[in-house]
Amino acid sequence: MELLSLRDAVARHVHDGDTVAMEGFTHLIPFAAGHELIRQHRRDLTLIRMTPDIIYDQLIGAGCARKLVFSWGGNPGVGSLHRLRDAVEHGWPGSIEIEEHSHAAMASAYAAGAAGLPIALLKGYHGTDLVEHNPNIRFVEDPFTGQRLAAVPALRPDVAVIHAQRADEDGNVLIEGIVGVQKESVLSASRAVVTVEEVVADLAAPSPNSVVLPGWTIDAVAVVPGGSHPSYTHGYSDRDNAFYKAWDAISRDRDTFQQWIRDNVLDGESP
């Protein structure tokens, strides 16, 4: 683990053409890191996220993505992700390949990746048309009972990027609250970059069972206070629901979207 600036962490560990998982299930979404990918003009990325959320709407609209692997592509409680829709419906700013799953399958696929398994098995995908459109959803027979089970390939990203509450000086990272698939995405990936609210002398994990990722499972830690905004960091900030609503109007139109990216991302300083 190295303690780096966000700019250096992204420059060193996220490359054009990579398969990237920037996770955080509504909570702890690594927005600042996403913006840094846009600033560094990453291209041809395969983006993996259960819920693309505004972070991937921004990366897709900014032209960073070649493919999206996902399971629910809306603006939670608000409606559409307009940049994702524009890419799928009209090929703007470029065509995007999609690989669509259910949450249950993607969560299991991360867990399988973390466990070093080639596939994830689940009781799932019963009677859904997703099966006809995604060749990565298949079925196998349980050799013991003969039961038919759904199988999807394990997720093995080149790099996982997450946000967390804090790290200590050895890069051990504490995650609290809705922990989502933070641990699984890091342990399934070849490399891991973590942004944190702060680095502290003592991690002060509140319980022996706290979710802690040892520093030796992580490649780079960058201190980015507020790095999950407009998502949130339990114990540090609240979800900016007003921004999630405002994004609907900002993102609906290509020009207002591009202006927002110029004003808030491209013209901004790298942390």
Partner: peptide, 28 residues
């Protein structure tokens, strides 16, 4: 909640589990 992951849900929950656990143990 506006989203399925608003802080309010976690703050007022009996317990919060990971997403793989939610789908594997509790739903499946």
């Amino acid at each position: 909640p506006l989203s399925i992951g608003d802080g309010e849900l976690c703050d007022t929950a009996l317990t919060t589990v990971s997403v793989p656990e939610m789908f594997q143990y509790w739903l499946q």
